[in-house]
């Protein structure tokens, strides 16, 4: 199955995150029939909660919609390798397939820092548009550098 279109959507979400000063990671959840169940991006700064990663926000969306039973057997298309927390969570909910862009050298839970327990039950494929995902991360961390010039995009306030 070609996941390019899905990954492009996730990349758009990641860009949106970057524009509001969040770590640029975007994610969509797809069910067995190819229906998109949820889309999400990082909201860590907005919520002051370091666990509000794109994947967790997607689960929230699905639960809010009352589709708890649809959570298992899904495919997750995410721009960056899920961190240890999210990878463990995805295994918990019975995710069947993880497609990611670039590896997560600091926290990767799909083998980069740790292969979380149970990962063997899930099909994992990395490297889809990895460069684009990585470029977004680089832009973000460049903006974080206090010595770097002021990044206008990062400071832009977003209306509710």
């Amino acid at each position: 199955m070609d996941w390019s279109d899905h990954m492009n959507m996730s990349l758009c979400l990641a860009k949106e995150a970057l524009e509001v000063g969040e770590v640029p990671v975007g994610c969509i959840f797809v069910d067995n029939d190819g229906n998109i169940l949820a889309s999400g991006r990082n909201t860590v700064n907005e919520t002051k909660n370091a666990t509000r990663h794109a994947e967790i926000n997607c689960v929230d969306t699905i639960i809010k919609a009352g589709f708890l039973e649809k959570l298992s057997n899904i495919t997750v298309v995410v721009t960056v390798e899920p961190c240890i927390m999210c990878a463990a969570m995805l295994i918990n909910i019975g995710c069947a397939n993880i497609i990611y862009g670039c590896a997560n050298d600091r926290f990767g839970g799909c083998g980069t820092v740790l292969a979380v327990p149970g990962l063997e039950k899930c099909k994992v494929q990395g490297g889809l548009f990895g460069n684009q995902a990585m470029d977004l991360l680089k832009q973000f961390y460049k903006g974080q550098n206090p010595n770097a010039p002021e990044n206008k995009v990062k400071k832009k306030p977003v209306n509710p």
Partner: peptide, 13 residues
């Protein structure tokens, strides 16, 4: 804590 929660505590410092 499970693996997810343990990592959440790392993220949360």
């Amino acid at each position: 804590p499970c693996v997810m929660c343990a990592m959440a505590l790392v993220h949360s410092r």
